[in-house]
Nucleic acid binder design. Structure first.
Lengths: 223, 223
DNA sequence: GTCAACCAAATTGTCAGACAATCTTTCAAT
DNA sequence: ATTGAAAGATTGTCTGACAATTTGGTTGAC
C-alpha cells in the first residue's frame, strides 16, 4: 500500500510558497499601487516569521514586482505610463519573435493545446469573469512562448507580463476589448496553424499594439 | 562649514552591498560553475550574519545568477551550451533593437561618450588585461542600451549579459577575438554615428552572432 | 494662526542563537 | 561490492533583540 506517495520532486519551502502567494496577491490587485507593505503586518497575515518574509520580499524585488526603498521598506510600484509603454514595447519585441518562431516549430499536439486555450479564452471573453479572461489569455501566450524554442524568451516574457498584470486586467474589462482581443488572437492562431511566419509576426505585433492602446485608454479613464 | 556633506540619495544596506560583492565575484569567476555556496562560509568571509546573506542570495537567485535547490542550498549554475545559445539569441534580439533605436535617437554628447568608450576598448583590446577588455566592452554596450529610449530593454539586457559574463571573458581571451570584436564594434559605432538604422542593426546582429560563435569555440576548447 | 523644532511611536536593518528537517559521508555488515 | 545505518554537516525556519531611520504629532515661538 502506498498511503502517502509523493512524487513531488522539489520540496516547497515556506519562502517559495510566500513568494507565490504574494505574487498572486499583487496580480489580483490586493495591494494598491503605491501602497506600502508593512513587514510585521504581512508576517501575521501570512503566518510566517519576519526573516522568511524578508527573503520572499527580496525575491519579489529582484523580479521588480515590488520596490524596496532602504529604511522605508517595500511597496507596490505605481508605474507611470512611460514605464508601462516601455514594458509593452519590450513585450512586443519578444512576443513577435516568439510567435514567429513558434509558427515554424510547434508540434501538432501543442497546436491542439493552443486551439483549446483559444476556445477557453473565447468562453471567458463572453463571460463577466474578468479574472478568467486574463488567466485564459495568459495560458494562450504561455503555450506560444513555451514552444518558441527559446526558454529565455519565455522567462523574460513571463516577467514582463507579470509587471503589467493590473493594466491587462483593467484593459481587458474595457467594453469590447475582450472580443477584439479574441479576434486578434484567432488571427495569431490561424497564422501559426498555417505555418505562415510573416503573417504570424504581423498579427502578433498588431495584437500587442492594440493591447497597449487599450491599456492606455483604461489608464486615462480609470485613473 | 559642512564637515560631512553626504549627497547619497539611497543609503546602502548590508544586503545591497552583499549582492553587489557576490555578483562581482561571480562575474570574476571566483566561484567555479557548478560549485556550491555554503552559507556559513560566506557569512564569515563577508563578515555578515546569515539572515542578511540569505536575503542577498534570494536576490541573486531571482536574477538567475545562482540557483537555489531546496535543502541543498545555493550553487553557481553550470550553463549548458543550449542555455548559453538561448541567452545569446535573446541578447541578439534586444541588442539589435537597441542599436537600431539608438541610431535614431542618440544625442551628440552621448555619441561622443560612445566614441570614447570605443577608444577605451581599443586600448584594452591591444593589452593583455582580460578584465579590462570585458569591462570596456560592457561600457560600450551600456551607453547604447542607455540611449535606446527604453529602460526596460536596458534592464533585461544587463541581466542577460551578466549571466554569460564568464563565457564572454573566456571568448574575449581567444586569440584574435578582441581585435575582431573591435572591428565589429567600430562598424556599429559608425552606423550609429551616420544615423543609418538598417546598417546599425545589421552590424549589431553580426557582432552578436560572432560573439556567440567565439563563445562556442572557447567552450569546446577550454572545457 | 502658522511655522519650526523636537520628541515619541512605528518601522526597518541587522544580528545572535537555537532547533528541526534534510542531505552527505562514513563505516560497518552482509 | 552493495546495502544499510549512524554521524556530521548544511539548510530551513523561528524567536527575540536592539540600533538606526523614518513618520507623525505635539509643543513652543513668532
Amino acid at each position: 500500500m502506498l498511503p502517502d506517495l509523493n512524487l513531488r520532486v522539489l520540496p516547497r519551502t515556506v519562502q517559495q510558497a510566500t513568494v507565490d502567494k504574494l505574487r498572486l496577491a499583487i496580480f489580483s490587485g490586493v495591494f494598491e499601487p503605491g501602497s506600502r507593505l508593512v513587514e510585521s503586518q504581512l508576517c501575521v497575515q501570512l503566518g510566517i516569521s519576519r526573516p522568511s518574509l524578508r527573503e520572499a520580499l527580496r525575491s519579489l524585488a529582484a523580479e521588480r514586482l515590488i520596490d524596496i526603498v532602504p529604511n522605508k521598506g517595500p511597496f507596490i510600484p505605481a508605474l507611470s505610463w512611460e514605464q508601462v509603454t516601455a514594458i509593452y514595447e519590450a513585450r512586443e519585441l519578444l512576443e513577435v519573435e516568439a510567435v514567429g518562431r513558434c509558427s515554424q516549430t510547434i508540434s501538432q499536439q501543442e497546436l491542439q493545446a493552443l486551439e483549446k486555450a483559444l476556445s477557453a479564452f473565447e468562453a471567458a471573453a463572453s463571460s463577466n469573469d474578468a479574472l478568467a479572461r486574463v488567466t485564459t489569455a495568459a495560458d494562450f501566450y504561455s503555450i506560444i512562448l513555451a514552444n518558441c524554442g527559446n526558454p529565455i524568451l519565455e522567462e523574460i516574457h513571463r516577467g514582463l507580463v507579470a509587471r503589467i498584470s493590473l493594466f491587462r486586467s483593467r484593459s481587458m474589462s474595457l467594453k469590447g476589448r475582450a472580443l477584439s482581443s479574441l479576434a486578434e488572437m484567432r488571427e495569431i492562431y490561424n497564422s501559426i496553424a498555417a505555418g505562415d511566419e510573416k503573417a504570424a509576426r504581423k498579427a502578433a505585433r498588431k495584437h500587442v499594439l492594440k493591447a497597449m492602446a487599450a491599456a492606455k485608454k483604461s489608464m486615462e479613464c480609470g485613473n
